[in-house]
Design a protein around this nucleic acid. Structure first.
Lengths: 340, 340
DNA sequence: AGGGATCACTGAACCGGTTCAGGTCTCACA
DNA sequence: TGTGAGACCTGAACCGGTTCAGTGATCCCT
C-alpha cells in the first residue's frame, strides 16, 4: 500500500489539505462535521501525520535531549539514573515529546559537541541538564546556541540570567541525616562526599557542617568520586589516618560509595553499626540488600525526573521560566544506624 | 543571527543548493575544490544540516526505537537494561542514529500502539525487540507495519520468515552452570526461572534439564517473575514444600531473584553456601556485593546491546538479514558456590 | 436593504534539505 | 572536425506537513 499523506486524505474527502490540517490539530477554521470526518478517516486508515514533515514545517523537533556524561560504568550501576529516566520518559510521553538520550564519557568536549550538533541540526527543542558544576560552562553555551534548558538540581543562590530548574534543599537533607546521627549518639562523623566540583556537593558539605555545628558535633570531610572503590578507599584512609579515633559514623555521597565503605569496614574488622554507622545520601536496592542494610536518604529520583521534564515542557510550550523546589527527602532508617 | 540554511551557504559561495548538498554528503558531482570550500564554510559557520529537513526528503528518520515494556520498578533496579542501553547507544551513535526510548508498563497493547504510531509517523526507521515470547505477535505486527526489526535473543530454531537477530546458546550457558554445580558436588538442584512465556526461559529450562540428566543430577523447576520477592517466595515455597530435603543448590533466572532468594535463606536460617548454594543467571553489582557474594553468569549486556544495534544498522543500511550468535557467557565464581 | 463581522474553506507559499533530468565545457579519439 | 564520454554544475520538482491571505456564503444589526 502506498503511504497515505494529508493530500490523500484531502482528496478522499473532497476537501483541501489545509482543512485536513486544521481538523487534525484542533484548530479553528473547520466545521465540527468536517473535523469528525477527517478524524474518523484518519482512524480508519490508521494514519498518523509524518513527524519529520511536521518537525520541518513547525520548526520544532518534538524531542528533548539529555546527555549522560558520567563514567559509563557508573551509569550502569547507579540505579539513580534509571529511576530518573523513567520519570522523565513518563512526563515527556504525556506531552508527546520524545527523549533523545546520549551517553558520553567524562569528556566535557563530547558533551559540548553534542549540544552544538543538536542545536545546529534542530534535533531537539531543549535539553535537560544535570549535575551543576562550579562555573558550569553549559548554561552559557546553551544560551548561545539558543537551546532552552532546565537545570535539574539548580543552585539555590541567584543566577546571572533567570533560568528554569528544580532546586533541592541540600541543607535540609543534611540536617535530616546529621540529626538522625546525633540522636543515635554520634558526636564525630565523617562525610565522604562526591567531587566538590558539583555545586550540590558543596551545598551538602556546608549543610552537614552547619547542622553538625548546631549540635556540637565534629565533621571530617573527605572528597571522593562516587565510585565503589572510592568509598572503600576513603574508609581505609580515614581509619588508618590519625583522625579515626573518634569518627563513629560515616555519611556517603551515594549508594555505591556506601557499599564500598561497607566492604572496607568488613575488611578492617570493624563492625557496622557497632563500631561505625553508615548513611547513604542516595537510597537504592543496594542499600536495602546490603548487610547490614544501610540507612539512606530517599530522594525519589523518578519524581525528580518527572518534575524536571515537566518544567522543560512548560518552558518549551509557553516560555515560562520557573523553578520548583523538591519536597524534602525522607530518611529510610535501616540497620546500619540501628541503636547499637 | 538568522539560521543558516543550505541556500544560504550556496549563495555565499555562488553555487547552487544542489552542489552544496552533494559536497556535504560526499557524493560525486562536485570538484574537490568546491567540496573543500563547502565543508570549510560549514565548519566556519558551525553549521549542521537540519535533521528534520533531511529526514523528510530522505524519508528516513535517523532514529531507531526501543520499547522497554517491563514493570517500571523492575527496569529501575535491573542493571542489565542500563548496561545494554549503554552498548546500544554507543553503536547507534557511531552510525549516526538516535535512540528513541519508550518505557511502557507490562501492557502489551501499549507496546503495540507505540509501534503503530512510530511506523505511521515515520518516527523511527527500525526497532529493537527484546524478550521473545511464545507466539510473539510483535514480529508479524512489525512486518505488517513495514518496520524493520532486530530480535535480541532470537530462538535458535528456524523461523517462518527470515529475520535479523542475535542468538544466545542458552543450552551452553545452562551446561556451564550445571557442570559447575556438579563439580561442587551438588546432585539435586532447583531452577527458579523467569516466566515460561519467554522463549529464552524455555530454552534455559530445557538446557538445565538436559545437562543435569547428562550428569545424573535431578532438577526441581520453578517458575517465577524476575522480581525480588518472587525469588524470595520461591525459596520459601521450595524449602517448605516436600521437595526440599535434597536440593542443595538453587539457580535463579536473574540477579534480583537471587537476592530475594538469599534473603529468604537467611530468614529461614539456612546458610549459603553450606546448606544451599546459589547461582544467578545474570551478573551485576548486586551479585558482587551480596554476602555471600553470588556466583553468576556474566552475559556482557553492553556487548549484547552493541551487537543488536549493529545488526539493526546493517539491516537498515544494506537490508542484510543476518543472525549473530553471542559468545558463550562466562561464569564468575564467587562465595555462594564456594567449596563448602 | 446595506454593511460589517463571522464562519468554512481553499490555493499557494513555505520549512530545508535531496535528487533527477538536463546543460556546458573540456578532452580524447577516430 | 565531428562525436562521444565524462566531469562539474544547475533549475526545479519533491518530501509531507503548516500557515497565511483571500474568497464566498451566511448571519446579525441598524
Amino acid at each position: 500500500m502506498a503511504k497515505e499523506t494529508i493530500a490523500g486524505l484531502a482528496k478522499r474527502l473532497g476537501i483541501s489539505k489545509a482543512s485536513v490540517s486544521y481538523a487534525l490539530n484542533g484548530q479553528p477554521g473547520v466545521s465540527e462535521l468536517t473535523r469528525r470526518r477527517v478524524l474518523d478517516l484518519a482512524e480508519e486508515l490508521e494514519w498518523y501525520p509524518s513527524s519529520s514533515a511536521r518537525a520541518l514545517s513547525r520548526s520544532r523537533a518534538g524531542a528533548v535531549g539529555m546527555v549522560l556524561s558520567a563514567d559509563p560504568l557508573l551509569i550502569g550501576t547507579e540505579p539513580y539514573y534509571m529511576g530518573m529516566l523513567a520519570g522523565i520518559e513518563a512526563a515527556l510521553a504525556e506531552g508527546d515529546m520524545a527523549l533523545m538520550l546520549r551517553m558520553v564519557g567524562k569528556d566535557p568536549a563530547q558533551e559540548r559537541r553534542t549540544y552544538e550538533r543538536w542545536a545546529g541540526e534542530g534535533k531537539v527543542d531543549g535539553v535537560l541538564l544535570f549535575d551543576h558544576l562550579h562555573d558550569d560552562p553549559r548554561p552559557a553555551l546553551l544560551d548561545r546556541l539558543g537551546l532552552p534548558f532546565v537545570l535539574h538540581g539548580a543552585p539555590e543562590a541567584e543566577w546571572g540570567t533567570p533560568f528554569s530548574g528544580t532546586t533541592t534543599d541540600h541543607a535540609a537533607d543534611a540536617a535530616t541525616i546529621v540529626e538522625h546521627l546525633h540522636q543515635r549518639g554520634h558526636r564525630r562523623i565523617a562525610h565522604i562526599s562526591g567531587p566538590r566540583a558539583f555545586l550540590h556537593e558543596e551545598e551538602r558539605i556546608r549543610g552537614v557542617r552547619t547542622s553538625a555545628d548546631a549540635h556540637g558535633m565534629e565533621v571530617v570531610p573527605f572528597e571522593a568520586d562516587y565510585a565503589l572503590d572510592a568509598g572503600h578507599d576513603a574508609v581505609v584512609a580515614l581509619v588508618q589516618g590519625p583522625v579515626h579515633r573518634a569518627a563513629t559514623a560515616v555519611v556517603f555521597g551515594n549508594d555505591l560509595m556506601s557499599m564500598g565503605g561497607l566492604l572496607a569496614l568488613r575488611e578492617l574488622g570493624l563492625r557496622c553499626p557497632d563500631d561505625v554507622a553508615v548513611v547513604s545520601w542516595d537510597d537504592s536496592l543496594h542499600c536495602r540488600l546490603a548487610s547490614p542494610s544501610v540507612t539512606a536518604l530517599f530522594r525519589n529520583p523518578g519524581m525528580q525526573g518527572r518534575v524536571a521534564a515537566e518544567l522543560l515542557l512548560a518552558l518549551l510550550d509557553t516560555g515560562d521560566i520557573q523553578t520548583r523546589s523538591m519536597p524534602r527527602s525522607e530518611l529510610v532508617v535501616r540497620a546500619s544506624t540501628a541503636p547499637d
